[in-house]
Simulated assay, not measured.
Amino acid sequence: MATAPLHPAHPSLPASGEVLTVAQIGWAPLQALLAEHGLALQRVDDGAPIPGSYWGEPEAGLIGCTVYVRGDTPVHSALHEACHLIVQPPERRVLVHTDATDSVAEEDATCYLQIVLADALPGVGSTRLMQDMDSWGYTYRLGSTRAWFEHDADDAQQWLLQRGLPVA
């Protein structure tokens, strides 16, 4: 059984390096990926508050079927919030505002799916996304995102498969 990841309440970029941001990979690939799953990507002006952000700026926000991001929003955050919506049935998506998780199992599935979908973004990929998740402060029982994904995420895979969602 996996342990749900913990996210820092007030994340900051680590001294060891920066995480990829939405501005660095470009808006179009992320927008296209979200559209494939029935979601909209809404660009927020630099410095403006991000609507629906659970952790606060620069973390992505959610309202209904829209993911809100700024240029400085980490790619892992944009994918994570989008995956919260992807794992939910459409009737639940439209009700989401800021906080989308209803269970540890859903949180684990969200984390797993964001890693899988990272391979669809040019210049990102699952390896880089997992590194960024570790740098940002996600924590797992086995010590790293990669260890969790490769050795402790069977329940997340099963959760996704039962709902017809992609797994690696």
Rank of each mutant, 00 (worst) to 15 (best):
H97R: 14
T127N: 11
A40C: 01
Y140K: 07
T127H: 13
E36L: 10
P8F: 07
S135M: 12
A60W: 00
T66W: 00
D155K: 11
H97A: 15
P5L: 07
D154R: 12
S12K: 10
P8E: 05
A147C: 01
S144M: 04
A147K: 00
V19P: 04
A40T: 10
P8I: 11
L160I: 08
A23M: 03
L79M: 03
L79H: 06
F149Y: 15
P122K: 02
G164Y: 03
R163L: 07
M130Y: 04
L142T: 12
C65G: 12
A60Y: 02
P49E: 12
P49L: 08
Q114H: 09
A48M: 10
V96C: 07
M133S: 08
Q158G: 13
R146T: 12
S16A: 14
I63L: 11
V116T: 14
A147M: 03
H151T: 13
H76K: 09
R128K: 13
G17K: 04
W159T: 03
L117E: 02
Q114G: 06
R92L: 11
Y140N: 06
A168S: 13
L142C: 04
L117K: 02
Q24P: 05
D132C: 03
Y140F: 15
I115F: 08
I115G: 07
I63P: 00
L30N: 02
H37P: 05
Q162M: 13
I86C: 01
L95A: 15
D102R: 13
T110E: 04
A156I: 06
L33V: 02
R141V: 06
M130I: 05
A48P: 01
E106D: 08
G56W: 10
H7R: 09
V94N: 07
I25F: 00
D154Q: 14
T98M: 11
L165V: 09
A35C: 01
T145M: 08
A48E: 09
A40E: 11
P14Y: 03
V75P: 01
P89L: 06
A23L: 02
A2E: 13
D108S: 14
A28G: 05
L129P: 03
R146N: 02
P14T: 04
E36K: 13
G64W: 00
A82M: 01
T98E: 12
L85H: 01
Q114M: 14
S77K: 07
R141N: 05
W55T: 13
V19T: 14
E36P: 00
A35K: 09
Y68N: 05
W136A: 13
W136S: 11
L79G: 01
V124T: 04
